[in-house]
Design a protein around this nucleic acid. Sequence first.
RNA 1: GCCCACAUAGCUCAGCAGGUAGAGCACGUUCUUGGUAAGAACGAGGUCAGCAGUUCGAGUCUGCUUGUGGGCUCCA
Length: 579
Amino acid sequence: MTIQLDSELADLRTRIRHSTAHVMADVVRQLYPNVKLAIGPPTDDGFYYDFLSDEPFRNEDLGKIEKGMRGVIRRNLTFEYREYPRKEMLQMNSDEPLKLEVIEGIPEDEAISTYSHGDFEDLCAGPHVESTGKIPAFKLLTVAGAYWRGDENRPMLQRIYGTAFETQEALDEHLERLEEAQKRDHRLLGRELDLFSVHEETGPGLIIWHPKGARVRGLFEDLWRREHYRWGYDLIYTPHIGRSTLWETSGHLENFKDNMFAAMDMDGQDYYLKPMNCPFHVLYYRNDLRSYRDLPMRIGELGSVYRYERGGTLHGMLRVRGMTQDDAHIFCRPDQVVDEINGVLDMTFHLLRMFDFTEFQVMLATKPDNAVGSDEEWDLAIDSLRSTLEQRGLDYGVDEGGGAFYGPKIDIHIKDAIGRMWQCTTVQFDFNLPRRFGLKYIGDDGQEHMPYMVHRVLFGSLERFMGVLIEHFGGAFPTWLAPVQALIIPISDRHLEYAEQVRAKLLAADIRVETDARSERMGFKIREAQLQKVPYMLVVGDREADAGAVGVRLRSGEDLGAIQVDELVERITSESVPG
RNA sequence: GCCCACAUAGCUCAGCAGGUAGAGCACGUUCUUGGUAAGAACGAGGUCAGCAGUUCGAGUCUGCUUGUGGGCUCCA
């Protein structure tokens, strides 16, 4: 029943948005007659329309366009459907080069149709609402550039984004969600909570973790190490640079060079900053003769890598050039690979749930254009990944051509508190490196065999994971992750001594505690602690000092009153367990 | 990398039409010792992102560079 309603609503929104896109194109054409039309589809959150225009739109133009759109909506023009013979359609659009290209892409046996309202007629399969008056609420949001057909070698078009809803309330709600997302922006919170910074002097995409951010990172790093030992991994450390010969052998210079920082020439040898950890892990594997009895070998490392990402793609902590991956490589026998992938998936869900992520989207990425390895190998690897997913009964999507150059992969996207998806985990099959490095193990038949290799990261990179965590929790980290768990707030200077006693007790219990010893009013200190989203505010004054207690206020605003220090230690300690 | 926009004090932002900088918060000093979201006074802080150019004169106009934001493409 609900599902039915949901899909009906989704369908209605699609029609409203698609119709709004038409109305927008209509008005844009009236205002800017030289503009050529591209396409204008609805999206998950709204719609856009792409235009080929000599002059770019400005944000200031949006008001004018919106105004024109309101006029069209008020006139309540009917959307009319028509079909045309291909030839006539091409003729009608002789002045619209991009439309012609779209028409030529429509299969011969398919009907070619338009929807029109008033004087505006647009190539379109629909569906639409009945008339422009059935667009209850819309708003234009931003202008942006977008490549025609998403191809960076083709002209850059001007895109206008907007959204539309079935009611004004639903639109307002959506706009509020956008505002809420802005408040949670990790770049904003990163500054406000003093977690990290980026500097022009260091270069873009390079993060400086401040003490509080480092504290949080340390907490999930500790958890990560503990869990990896528990799940049968061994951890190693490897260098940040390696000789060109290493990257030649691995194939990175051949297939990944565009993403690597330029070579450093030392003593006539080229060294490269590592963009991945795998070659080093492979060298560790190859350091000894391995037996089938040694497998699987799970080798992990919090490895810092550097990748030259294109300037326009960088974004706070979520897309950077220097990152630490929670990397691991599993070397195993062919008969172990399904179990190993299963184990990785188990561990992933286990770990991510500890961070309050409960919804996931799984993608299977297949062979890309620049792939190494034969079709047979790829098919085999993809099949083993697919059957693993299917045996687990996981819903998954397929990202055709989205695999790494060395093998197919499973990506897991996690859904944060306000419904956005982030790719963190990736499990990648690799039949490139074992061959290139000549990896082997001695089987129970006494013969040499080539091991299978699986790359995987769970958090992805610590930078991105941190960014996602900040946004997921809106900066209000759960007690176990909070950089400062408790802030002692002495009411006046004469309570500093008692505050120090309390602090010492909490510190002794490994509680992350600080004292606000400034001679400010309590209200002021509480306000700041509140803005810093500290889980526990501990007010100490005469009453508390006399009673050996602290006045506990939570960041929710709840006042727990006086609590004995020992009791509080117990409470915070019990909340300090991960998950 | 591409399209558009933006760059003024540590942060958030004013700065009218070119005439050589301003607020709030933060910071420092002093006063205040206050019971659950901002006590007061005073003070210090800026080569207006950088480099060229136009002009008698540039924070303001132009160009380039760097960085940032929204997208596209790409990705952990």
